[in-house]
Amino acid sequence: MSTPVTESAPIPARPLPASYRSTKVRRQRVRAAWLFLAPMLVTLAMVAGWPLLRTFYFSFTDASLSDMSDTLFIGLENYLVYDDGRWFGVLADPIWWRAVWNTVYFSVVSVSLEVVFGVIVALVLNAEFKGRTLVRAAVLIPWAIPTIVSAQMWAWMLNDQFGIINHLLMAFGIIASPIAWTADANYSMWAVIMVDVWKTTPFVALLVLAALQMLPKDCYEAAEVDGIHPVKVFFRVTLPLITPALMVAVIFRLLDALRVFDVIYVLTSNSTSTMSMSIYARQQLVEFQDVGYGSAASTLLFLIIALATIAYLYLGRKQLQLGGD
């Protein structure tokens, strides 16, 4: 599922007015605040902070899944090492670079499509018409379906022999012979993108719809009075006004897409033509039992996502403005 969107974090606290801030009450409240935060922070440290540090550490060792305690520190060998006239390590593995390229390609294409379709669906849902609630409920269905299930549903519809998609395309004469959507390297990435777009466009649409419903009505009335073409109104008025919401939707979708795993795992398994970074790392870690090497790939994935986030926030000039203090 996509994480709910959190606009560049402007949640200022709502403190009591000064008159109530007698030192005793204030001190009691601050102490209570930390006490209340403690269980959450401890849990996050246990499931996120510590494991992340351990992953970084493992990436410099030769740990294996069967025995993670007896490990040898081997420096950067999992990343890159020159041995006997050849380069080894994740960074020298063409399959890793293929996975990086696949992930980036998948993320850029699917998020772009989701934004375009999401805006179109949001504009439709924003119009007043009979049965709008029903249409909105219908649009939510793909979002409600578990990723695994939607991948299986599409795998069946895309089945090369009995799939309805090949059947329809052939019935309309668009293709002459059945396409092996998930097995053929030329099409499998598109199959994955199609399923992802189908599944997550509703999320983008809902966010854009929420932004659309907050737009001031008067500029539209003014535009209508002036007889400006609706398409022009959209690009000149609507789009600039919903850009902040779009930026938020894009960053959340992008972060989700860069760590994509389930949909690819179910649709095309470990095929290199669609292998994502997450699939590569997990394959090394679990199937090949090489925790050190897999952790090195995981660490690189973490760094790539962190860099992408920073670059996006910088380019979008969306500063994190955490309110309060």
Binding site: T3, A48, P51, L255, L285, I305
Partner: peptide, 15 residues
């Protein structure tokens, strides 16, 4: 919340 889950996989496995 922005974490890639794979990044904690080996550490979490150990925990």
């Amino acid at each position: 919340s922005m974490f890639p889950q794979v990044a904690v996989l080996s550490g979490l496995f150990e925990v």
